[in-house]
Amino acid sequence: MKKILTAKEVITQVKDGSSIMVGGFMVCGHPFTLMEELLKKNVKNLTIISNDAGFPDKGVGKLIVNGQVSHLIASHIGLNPIAGQKMNSGEMRVDLVPQGTLAERIRAKGAGLGGILTPTGVGTAVENGKEKKNINGRDYLLELPLGADFAFIKASIADKNGNCFIAKAAKNFNLIMAMAADYVVAEAEKIVEVGELDPDMVTVPSVFVKAIVKAEING
């Protein structure tokens, strides 16, 4: 059985300077409850790895507005204008990574790989400083694994062993992020007894999940 914790108990473990992967795609499949608690605790100097900067008034976007994030690694920040302002003023370092590369770097970390070779970004600014390899006549960039201290993911249903079912398009980055961090917390809309979740319906195997939090905010 995994620990079922409150959001507050989880966030107590986050320190200034922690790195956190946050699941979701434009706040679909996003751990809102844990984000609100992070906002309340006001931990600073966070490195956030997420697909995007969300919206200024929702989820991870609020942490950026509140000045808690010193380094953001994401593929897109266009729908959170404050993120752009903080990047331009130098207040927040932003590494923009092509979305598929971001996904594969995270997966590589979780899968024990030393990196991946991708054609994405060849001939663009993305290739600067990276090793290039030509394989069967095509150029590829070597992209390195990406991990974090924490991953906060969102599940539709978690059983008490930590197996998670994630519905529809809410899967997005949640599965691979669960593979790539030291301490993984699943924020679940519904928590069920062991045996109640059909093993065939498991999106995230329990092996990755350290703790479960009941979602209080779902949108």
Binding site: F25, M26, V27, C28, G29, N51, F55, L79, Q99, G100, A103, E104, R107, S156, A167, K168, A169, A170, K171, N172, F173, N174, L175, I176, T203, N218, G219
Partner: peptide, 26 residues
């Protein structure tokens, strides 16, 4: 709430569609 497009707007899925995670998508 679990079905949005790449802009984060609510959409639908048609018959014969399928869902997957970001690694599969890319």
């Amino acid at each position: 709430k679990d079905i949005v497009n790449a802009g984060g707007k609510p959409v639908t899925i048609v018959k014969g569609g399928c869902f997957f995670d970001s690694s599969m998508s890319f």
